[in-house]
Design a protein around this nucleic acid. Sequence first.
DNA 1: CGCAAACTCCGATGGAGAACCGGGATATAC
DNA 2: GTATATCCCGGTTCTCCATCGGAGTTTGCG
Lengths: 145, 145
Amino acid sequence: MELSCKCEYAVLALLTLVDHYHQGDPVQIRQISAQQNIPDRYLEQLLATLRRSGLVCSQRGARGGYLLAREPWKITVLEIINCIEGREIQTIKALPATLTVAKAVVHEVWQEADQAANSIFCHYTLQDLCDRTAAKQQIDLMYYI
Amino acid sequence: MELSCKCEYAVLALLTLVDHYHQGDPVQIRQISAQQNIPDRYLEQLLATLRRSGLVCSQRGARGGYLLAREPWKITVLEIINCIEGREIQTIKALPATLTVAKAVVHEVWQEADQAANSIFCHYTLQDLCDRTAAKQQIDLMYYI
DNA sequence: CGCAAACTCCGATGGAGAACCGGGATATAC
DNA sequence: GTATATCCCGGTTCTCCATCGGAGTTTGCG
């Protein structure tokens, strides 16, 4: 439903890190924000969150920057969303005090839909998205010629 | 992901209308808010939205209230969500000005997940939820005995 | 060593929407 | 005509999103 922009930024930023993954040196916020058109101060926050969740590593100081913490084919889109959207307490607070039977049924439907969406997100890795981007760019090139 | 409370309220309110569907007389906001534990002034707004979308009919004046506009098995959860969440412009504004290839790929994934969730929501009708609620109450009763 | 480049932490801002409350106008059954 | 309901207008509080700015800290390099 809601792409939430935060998640989009996070995925795009990580895709930039994938591009530079084969060479070992870190990528700076400036490079990412320039390539993906993301406000750099905002991106900084998102990268901090991703770092705290262990999806990226950071290197401080001059020539520093960010690196993927794992191989691109071992990071799913679901992980990124969960990390950014802060998913820990939802399932716990899903059963609050006044839980009528009707409420429980509605929540079941929502959880089912949630799982359906998550199974899609968990199916795609960063590598998959990277490959699809490359393929799409090839097609664009062919049209250009 | 986010149940959004608005949608939950709307579905619960409509479930109350289903309960009184076989008898033809309208149900007042007070009754619904009391049964489902929804703040009445807020519920009023939601019912106004549902009325404008043609999901419920209203009868003004004394002995007035709200009625389902259609049979309970002809109203899906997806319709309720779309009505409350105001879904019309998202697909159009999904392709804005600066649309890079990477952005397009990310949007494709999101749309895929969106469709997966929607296929769940569109699968359940109000009648289905009502039946499930009744079945669940039977089970609760058996445990009680 | 010292400086500059880069990340890190903290806080502030404006805007949007969610959730809620109140008052007065209007329509209808009795 | 009055009681009872919806309808419509507005306002408030709160949270979160997206963004910006400054001060502090770590590190590479000359």
